[in-house]
């Protein structure tokens, strides 16, 4: 995939429009959550088959739960592998997070305590996943709303895990910004500490500012100007990578979404002021 490729997350709301149009030249790939597509049939499956013939797909998982403390769900990971193979998907990403406890799945992305003594455990699990899926696992930095005590800096933690496991990193620029605002961290310093060679692609998304001034990573608005500015820092420091716009709520039309990701990339690359109207 070319280093300045553009993509959007595939949502049900976009399926019809994407299927009836010829392959568009203004996007290069689609990102799908395998958990929403694995093992299904019917209309949605037919639509996915149509789109897989038109666009390269990236799989971005939600339920791997790489950082929980119960044994990996190996059956599920094998199913993911079959799905990736069936659709010829080479990039498989998920989150450095947990979504499960000993009782079961919670269906959300929860943070892991960032400590040196946890790195070896996590690295072992990442390697186990990579062995099963036969691909590099790419892990995303999440937005988090809970802080454990005495943690190491996030970038240092991510870098150590990437180095020791060989996993890739999916740098979510919006998540870095949201965390920096919510936890009074230096976003630019954080991204500069990440190893460039591990970064596989970037995410951008919109967030919501709550009444108390804290930010919520909603994927429900346009990308904010501050996130674009941080994206410019990232682009300048780590270089171009495929860029994906996530939009999961209040999804606009396909044309609008594709226009937005194109505009965001131009602004990130050039450092131009980005006109964002929410």
């Amino acid at each position: 995939m070319k280093e300045n490729a553009l993509g959007i997350g595939l949502r049900s709301e976009l399926l019809e429009a994407l299927c009836i149009q010829p392959a568009r030249e203004d996007i290069d790939f689609l990102e799908i959550a395998p958990e929403n597509w694995m093992g299904i049939g019917g209309r949605k499956r037919d639509q996915l088959d149509i789109l897989a013939d038109k666009y390269p797909l990236i799989a971005h998982g939600l339920s791997l739960s790489i950082a929980d403390t119960v044994p990996l769900n190996v059956g599920f990971i094998r199913d993911v592998c079959s799905f990736l193979n069936d659709y010829g998907i080479s990039i498989y990403s998920d989150h450095l997070s947990m979504c499960r406890d000993s009782s079961g799945y919670l269906y959300d992305l929860l943070p892991v305590p960032r400590r040196k003594e946890n790195i070896e455990y996590l690295t072992g699990r990442i390697c186990q996943v990579q062995d099963i899926v036969g691909r590099q696992l790419v892990l995303e930095n999440i937005s988090y709303y809970h802080r454990y005590e005495d943690q190491m800096p996030e970038a240092e933690f991510l870098a150590a895990i990437a180095e020791q496991s060989g996993c890739g990193l999916l740098l979510d620029i919006n998540n870095v910004y949201v965390n920096s605002r919510n936890h009074l961290e230096d976003a630019v310093a954080m991204v500069r500490c990440l190893p460039s060679n591990a970064i596989v692609y970037y995410h951008v998304a919109g967030h919501l500012e709550l009444e108390d001034g804290s930010l919520l990573d909603t994927h429900g608005t346009k990308v904010g100007e501050e996130v674009v500015r941080l994206g410019h820092e990232v682009w300048g420091w780590h270089g171009p990578r495929p860029l994906l716009l996530e939009r999961d709520n209040q999804v606009p039309s396909l044309d609008e979404l594709i226009r937005e990701v194109g505009d965001v990339q131009k602004s990130i690359a050039a450092g131009d002021r980005y006109a964002c109207s929410i």
Binding site: P113, R115, N118, Y121, T123, Q128, Q130, G166
Partner: peptide
């Protein structure tokens, strides 16, 4: 690095 059998998580984690 290849995965060995799955280790236990640190108790504090």
């Amino acid at each position: 690095m290849r995965a060995q059998s799955e280790a236990h998580a640190p108790s504090r984690m």
